[in-house]
Design a protein around this nucleic acid. Structure first.
Ligand SMILES: [Mn+2]
Ligand SMILES: [Mn+2]
Ligand SMILES: [Zn+2]
Ligand SMILES: [Zn+2]
Lengths: 144, 144
DNA sequence: GTACTATATAGTAGTTAATACTATTTAGCA
DNA sequence: TGCTAAATAGTATTAACTACTATATAGTAC
């Protein structure tokens, strides 16, 4: 393990300790798999890789552990929140804020976000859509 | 129906005609429901509202129709892509580009996106996260 | 208006992702 | 080296979404 990875693994253990989570072999394997790829794998993909190392690991453990990592900030969900699909017929330029408590999605509009700069790194792709999106606690939920 | 809504409805019908979609009562009801709310409803929510107007409408029709609207550009999905959840242990600042064909999620980093401006409209919320995200066709898929 | 036909729908079944349950095991600690 | 709360394996269940099929209908041609 190189210095970077060792350090990342140390931070992972710190995060577990802070949240009173035990450092189990399953969690270690799952974290190793997730932190050594840039392909943003699904739970199923992580499960398949984990079984090569730990043949009896269950899908439930992998899925639950990934959610746990997400809860403690050791990882995050980049696609598909697990929530249901939600639709919008408002085609005018606007952006969204989502409350993580009540799941309300609130429209707002800030012109600069309608056409954000397209970084040079992305030039080799055909960009169809850009999105600026905020998440947090809404005014109503703050009062509770 | 006011001028704005009438115009929006006209544009909706145009979009249907362009894609050779029939203007059915079900589609009209679903579009009316979706276009007259800013609450970004789920298929289930639209279905419940639609049943008040059209008691025999099926969930399948509502769900399929919402997907159709999304396909023809009369609406779009603002939450939950239908794809499975995918995870990322990369905690360093970075952004994502997703290829809509092969579903690859590709990391990139453009410093200005690490701290985007927080519009005044959002001051009443506690913002926990901001995201800048691009979608399109990746270099590999372009070649096909 | 009437008849035709490809498209759309209702009702239901099936699939897949994700979560819940429970008996057993184990990490962390005294 | 036990003890105990937490975690896991194996399985069941739930929930979101999609697929299927017989029937109905929107759009069109006459
Ligand atoms: Mn919106
Ligand atoms: Mn990433
Ligand atoms: Zn809220
Ligand atoms: Zn691609």
């Amino acid at each position: 393990m190189n210095i970077d990875k060792e350090n990342q693994f140390f931070e992972f253990k710190e995060l577990c300790h802070k949240s009173d989570l035990k450092i189990t072999p399953q969690r270690v394997v799952i974290y190793e798999i997730l932190s050594s790829t840039d392909e943003h794998p699904s739970a199923e993909t992580v499960y398949k890789k984990a079984r090569r190392i730990m043949p009896n690991i269950s899908f439930d453990t992998v899925n639950r552990t990934l959610n746990t990592f997400s809860d403690i900030g050791a990882a995050f969900i980049v696609e598909g929140t697990g929530d249901v699909r939600r639709f919008d017929a408002g085609l005018g330029n606007h952006q969204h804020f989502k409350c993580v408590k009540c799941k309300r999605i609130i429209d707002f509009h800030y012109e600069e976000f309608d056409n954000v700069h397209r970084p040079a790194e992305l030039e080799k792709f055909d960009i169809l859509k850009s999105t600026v999106y905020f998440e947090g606690i809404c005014d109503v939920c703050k009062k509770k």
